[in-house]
Write a protein that binds this DNA or RNA. Structure first.
Length: 879
RNA sequence: GGGCGGAUAGCUCAGUCGGUCAGAGCGUCUCGCUUACACCGAGAAAGUCGGGGGUUCGAGUCCCUCUCCGCCCACCA
């Protein structure tokens, strides 16, 4: 075995082995209980980022844990076509090449898209494989697969026929760059500082009214002025008309409760064609809608040639100047507000009127709300339940049409006689009148419409396949906070609508990884971290262990590379303790493998063996509880601590002498059995977190299985926690406390902390183990030689640690231990005082729980014993 | 404007029912290349738990309030 763990030599071997074993492939016909998760399909817009690594690692912890616990685990991978995002990426690429999608044409563009998906889709899947994710690669899906397309059309047609999908002119968030509508959830709000201007509109019947706006250019499309009905300032003006400057249009003043009296001047110009609130007001008052901005984001006002064709920003300046010239500008001031941007391309959105397809959400949301309220779908951390419910309760209709090239065509046609119908297989003629003159709807669907069907579409729906029957509903979803509305909520709604059951019962929101300076990671800032780079640097196990340790708090987490490297060292530690056991216990034939020590009788076990078994039992219980609560960081920390500090630093150190060739055979076999058993249990517990190193180590154990994934999850026999074991556990803990105190005292006495000179040591207390045993264990952990009598010519340094005390002897340096003992006595005294005060308080003894009071009593008696011992030693000095 | 989250050692973070909860890793300092591991070991220093009030026998933990960060939602133009 190599002296240090080399992840890059080991990882490919295991990836191949798992593949050969088909470890991740689920059997739809097995009689095991199933456990199902769908991996959130990454967008094929580039490479993986740290978020994918965290999300996937968290899921793989569960997948491997459940597999070892006897579940038929289906963890389904796939990728998403991400229409707008991908189209933007490719268009940008074309622009760099001096080309464009228009130049390529539809077919040429599609070719380009297919190439892109083939190249990057494959790359993303390979990256996830490199992370060791035990996904079911045999069921890899893509949202553009023919079967998947069928699912989308089936869902669309069902909702359409039910009347839940409709088409209509509404004000939408329009992205002039993507040339498409987007949904409310795809808006990226950013703070802008603009000028708020007040304009004086003359009232036809005399006087005027001053309105406030940050978008003066839209006044060209004003069709009214609105004030609050209860506003005394304007009550007399309601019903009158203003003459709109620049255009000369005569528009009414209306009263609408949607107007905020306290904002601006309390009077609002109504531009229904370019503002959502104004659109609503216009609807309520029957005001006409005028469009002044075209789909490309330029002014569309042919009757005003001085503005026609200008971009919105230029028009803003030009119109404002014209208004100034006309003398209607009353005031201009800076104003900070939120402006919507396209979250795919960053362009400022333009609210405008267009014909779009919509889904009526309310009837779909109701069952989704109930599912959460009744605890059938729960979010972790808990607070996300409220986030989900608030959105669901205020849900609005969903704009699902997009005016782009890439994506799923809306499966609707209109015939020459005006009949419109949805279809699953595109028909040759109109089902109503037989007309063959069919017009295919030009729009495509919002990508999230297809994603919303993921949990059942991947299993073959609408076919009633074996997979669908077996793997729906699933169990757990692990995903990022930012897509709770875009994706999670919609999956719940479609699952309930089309399958009659929620797609999962637990939703784990994983942490968001921020850059080291606390800012968001983003490609534009160039501060993203590629997980593959981290794997190259530290190994996949280290990246995954880190992900497990930080992934489930659901909170923001600053990226900390040092923390990843600490898990690389941990892997190396584990590797080396395995290597140690192999060299000590290797079988003769094959020096790379540990020999089977055979059965061991419990009565042959030494106290430290039982101490270790007791720790193991605790660790298994702690891991189980942590994993069941999705507190993976607890499990990871616990394993790190038990493996490094209990097993390596303590147990193996205490057992080294017994593991030598020349040790007593019975004792040696007991130590070997305990060490091997411990390592075996710990490797199995750790496997979901660090699959590669654990597999590689486990291969060295006697009777190793081809993969840990085929092993059972560890359980512990009752006797690992019985009375004898508990007693041994306490006694050995006490020895360790004594050792620590001895080392500190020795250093204080002037012996370098790391000196290997073995000082003589007189063990004064017997403890539960007896003199000889305590002496043996102390010698195993620290550089002391236990003696029977006080050696001559050396200075005694007395040490008291809880229930134990000993005297060590250092060179005649004249070290004085009374100062230290006095200080210890003082500390014990204050501890006693505090405990006595607490126990003397009736409020405490009466109201605190019994075990807490008992604990305090125990601590007090321990402290009293320690004080007595200290006083005794110091009293001898005085005498 | 409403809501949520965070503020704990120099740094990154744990801390569940209020009762050994003042913790880990990294970093720093001392000392040691002890044949598993220097990707290591032994030890040490280091925190008014953001500020202020309150509840309680007892508060990092519960309540109120303030400050500073971050996020989500929202039709104040």
């Amino acid at each position: 075995m190599d002296k240090s763990f080399d992840p890059h030599a080991v990882e490919p071997r295991w990836l191949e082995r798992w593949e050969q074993l088909g470890a991740g492939i689920a059997d739809a016909h097995s009689d095991k209980p199933s456990f199902v998760m769908a991996l959130p399909p990454p967008n094929i817009t580039g490479a993986l980022h740290m978020g994918h690594a965290v999300m996937g690692s968290v899921q793989d912890i569960l997948a491997r844990n459940r597999r070892m616990r006897g579940f038929e685990v289906e963890w389904a991978p796939g990728t998403d076509h991400a229409a707008i995002a991908t189209q933007n990426v490719i268009e940008r690429q074309l622009a760099v090449e001096g080309s464009s999608k228009e130049e390529l044409g539809r077919a040429g563009f599609q070719l380009r898209v297919d190439q892109w998906y083939a190249e990057y889709g494959g790359r993303i899947l390979r990256q996830m494989r490199a992370l060791g994710f035990s996904l079911d690669w045999s069921r890899t899906r893509f949202t553009l697969d023919p079967q998947y397309v069928r699912a989308i059309r089936t869902a669309f047609k069902a909702l359409y026929d039910e009347g839940l999908i409709y088409r209509g002119p509404r004000i939408v968030n329009w992205c002039p760059r993507c040339r498409s509508a987007i949904s409310d959830e795809e808006i990226d709000w950013q703070e802008h500082t603009d000028a708020m201007v007040q304009l004086r509109y003359p009232v036809e019947e005399g006087g005027d009214i001053v309105i406030a706006t940050v978008r003066p250019e839209t006044m060209l499309a004003d069709t009214g002025v609105a004030v609050h009905p209860d506003d005394p300032r304007y009550r007399d003006l309601v019903g009158k008309h203003v003459i709109l400057p620049l255009t000369g249009r005569r528009i009414p003043i209306v009263a609408d409760a949607g107007v905020e009296r306290d904002f601006g001047t309390g009077a609002l110009k109504v531009t229904p064609g370019h503002d959502p609130l104004d659109f609503d007001i216009a609807q309520r008052h029957g005001l006409p809608i005028i469009t002044a901005i075209a789909l490309d984001g330029t002014m569309d006002v042919p009757e005003l040639p001085q503005f026609h064709g200008l971009t919105v920003m230029r028009a803003r300046t030009a119109v404002l100047q014209a208004l100034r010239d006309a003398g209607v500008v009353v005031k201009e001031e800076e104003y900070v507000h939120e402006v919507g941007h396209c979250d795919r391309c960053g362009e400022v959105l333009e609210p405008l009127i267009s014909e779009q397809w919509w889904v009526t959400m309310r009837p779909l949301a109701e069952p989704g709300i109930a599912a959460n309220e009744q605890g059938r779908v729960r979010f972790h951390p808990r607070r996300f339940n409220d986030v989900y419910l608030r959105w669901m309760r205020n849900i609005r209709d969903w704009c699902i049409s997009r005016q782009i090239w890439l994506g799923h065509a809306i499966p609707v046609s209109t015939c020459g006689n005006g009949h419109r119908f949805a279809w699953i297989e595109e028909p040759a003629s109109c089902p109503e009148c037989g007309s063959t003159e069919l017009q295919h709807d030009p729009d495509v669907l919002d990508t999230w419409f297809s994603s919303a069907l993921w949990p059942f579409a991947i299993f073959g729906w609408p076919e009633q396949s074996d997979d669908l029957r077996r793997f729906y509903p699933g169990d757990v979803l692990v995903t990022a906070r930012e897509i709770i509305f875009l994706w999670v909520a919609r999956m719940i709604m479609t699952g309930l609508r089309f399958q009659g059951a929620e797609p999962f019962h637990d939703v784990i929101i994983n942490s968001t990884i921020l850059a080291a300076d606390g800012s968001r990671m983003s490609k534009s800032k160039g501060n993203t971290i590629d997980p593959v780079e981290m794997i190259e640097r530290y190994g996949a196990d280290a990246v995954r262990a880190w992900a497990g340790a930080v992934g489930t708090s659901g909170q923001d987490m600053r990226f900390d590379e040092d923390r990843i490297s600490s898990y690389q060292r941990f892997a190396n530690k584990l590797w080396n303790v395995t290597r140690f056991l192999v060299t000590r216990l290797g079988d003769g034939d094959d020096s790379d493998r540990i020999a089977d020590p055979g059965e061991v009788r419990p009565e042959d076990l030494a106290p430290e063996d039982r101490w270790m078994l007791s720790r193991l039992a605790e660790t298994v219980a702690a891991c189980d509880s942590a994993i069941e609560q999705y507190r993976f960081h607890d499990a990871m920390e616990r394993l790190y601590d038990t493996i490094w500090h209990s097993f390596c630093d303590r147990y193996v150190e205490m057992s080294k002498a017994r593991l030598r060739d020349d040790a007593d055979p019975t004792s040696r076999r007991a130590a070997a059995w305990t060490a091997i058993t411990s390592l075996d249990v710990l490797l199995r517990l750790l496997h979901p977190f660090m699959p590669f190193i654990t597999e590689e180590s486990a291969q060295r154990l006697p009777g190793a299985a081809p993969s840990l994934q085929l092993r059972e999850w560890p359980t512990t026999p009752q006797w690992w926690q019985d009375e004898t074991t508990q007693a041994a556990r306490a006694a050995v803990d006490e020895v360790q406390d004594l050792v620590q105190a001895l080392r500190a005292a020795r250093q204080e006495a002037g012996v370098p902390a790391a000196s290997r000179d073995r000082q003589p040591l007189l063990v004064d207390s017997d403890g539960a183990l007896g003199h000889a045993e305590v002496g043996r264990l102390v010698e195993s952990l620290a550089p002391f030689t236990v003696v029977d009598s006080e050696p001559a010519g050396m200075t005694a340094v007395r040490v008291v640690a809880g229930g134990a005390h000993a005297t060590l002897y250092v060179g005649a340096a004249g070290a004085d231990d009374t100062g230290r003992l006095r200080k210890q006595l003082d500390d014990t005294g204050t501890r006693i005082q505090r405990l006595q005060a607490q126990l003397g308080n009736a409020g405490f003894t009466d109201r605190a729980p019994h075990d807490v009071v008992e604990q305090a009593r125990t601590r007090l008696s321990e402290a009293l014993a320690e004080r007595a011992r200290l006083q005794q030693l110091l009293g001898e000095d005085a005498a």
